[in-house]
Design a binder for these strands. Sequence first.
DNA 1: TTCATATTCAACTAATAAGTTGAATATTAG
DNA 2: CTAATATTCAACTTATTAGTTGAATATGAA
Lengths: 107, 107
Amino acid sequence: MNPAALDHTMLALADPTRRAILQRLGAGEARVTEIAAPFAMSLNAVSKHIRMLERAELVRRRRAGREHYLSLNPKPLDAAAEWIEQQRKLWNIRLDALERALAEHDD
Amino acid sequence: MNPAALDHTMLALADPTRRAILQRLGAGEARVTEIAAPFAMSLNAVSKHIRMLERAELVRRRRAGREHYLSLNPKPLDAAAEWIEQQRKLWNIRLDALERALAEHDD
DNA sequence: TTCATATTCAACTAATAAGTTGAATATTAG
DNA sequence: CTAATATTCAACTTATTAGTTGAATATGAA
């Protein structure tokens, strides 16, 4: 588990265009041009977003002639979700301890 | 639900220093200097990281004289976790459908 | 072969992030 | 009052992101 991998994953998720691309790919693979179509930016800009998603390994590319088919790889989401869940768990444990301490103090 | 809020949350989580700060705050509130101590960077650099965490509303600040006590606000993590879970759920639904289609095809 | 399509590469600008150092501000301690 | 402490502000550098336009590359179609 490379620590920079989580950096890349989180950074990839920190942009609405990239989140929309992932959401689109959730429905199945698609070509670069198809993915870019809904966005009010150049194809090149979307191409760069895709590159960031690939760096995070959230997106895989399959070349079929001149067309590149992209698909979602949800694996890195596991580490991201795990970090957040771990954090929430620890926080809750601490809050529970606080509550118990307060309850005791009431006696 | 401001869409930029999720951007800020994810971006805040995309840095190991900031994640470490959040982890530290999971154990309870702490002053800026205390938080900065373990890091091999200037106090000012950590101060800036804290500002980003505040922008994401992951950290709250309570001033007590010249000392600023920081605490974790885990609320924004909910939206982040929810986005990821939603994505994983959709992905799994699609994979299940794919599997069913394949199974049918086998008959 | 020639033309159109799909995509990236290269070069550029502008904005933001991440870090530095040094000064300013506010508060507490002696 | 003066000195030390806690923190931010300001200015600066460097790296990265996000976007653009125009050219290159590779493939497919006529």
